[in-house]
Design a protein around this nucleic acid. Sequence first.
DNA 1: ACCCAGGTGGCCC
DNA 2: GGGCCACATGGG
Length: 224
Amino acid sequence: MNSPTQAELRARLMQLFDLLLERYGPLHWWPADTPFEVCVGAILTQNTNWLNVEKAIANLKREGLLSLEALWEIDQERLAELIRPSGFFNIKSARLKHFIGWLLERYGTLDAMFAEDWRLVREELLAVRGIGRETCDSMLLYAGGKPSFVVDAYTRRLLSRLGLVRETDSYEEVRSLFMDSLPHDSDLFNEYHALIVEQCKRHCRKKPLCQGCPLQGLCTRPSR
DNA sequence: ACCCAGGTGGCCC
DNA sequence: GGGCCACATGGG
């Protein structure tokens, strides 16, 4: 099977978006009250069910800790206890501390960070311990409104089942599919990623391979 | 009693 | 550049 042209890819991606939007959207992500809460949530949700993250966020809110200053002041041990429900609490408390320390040192505020060219900020964020590609892109897109497409496990699962990427493609390769094919529109990227998550949460479980998946028509590979 | 969840870094080859 | 592992809770 020869690979689809750039124009065909673009058409398929827009077709997929339209279909998902019709079914679920618009969803207006990310579920948070402030950009800072988005950043905290992005770290807490690493390989973790969102319901567990909500419990951790609720703990931080209850204690009045959902601010840059408050999280800078708090002991890492106490922070770990408060975010316990989100799992990996020792690692994540350290990662939150790393991020906050870096942000205060480098920019002082989130607004100042987002005032800088986001492509530069992306490189800087990726160098912060505990902030990988998905976390970084989530912050840029959902906290900063920057057109940086977010790739996650759901994106990979759905796109590979549709035959648009390979299972083995790297994060940057999958991200490039979107970045190179679609207009750099943060509203579009915001909805697109949210819709992929919504679709997969409902229909793309790990074991069964999308039996009777309504997106079959978009598949570039033969249905089994 | 399993299996899974909106990853990441360290270590190894 | 990849493959494997630890990290941990709560829901289905």
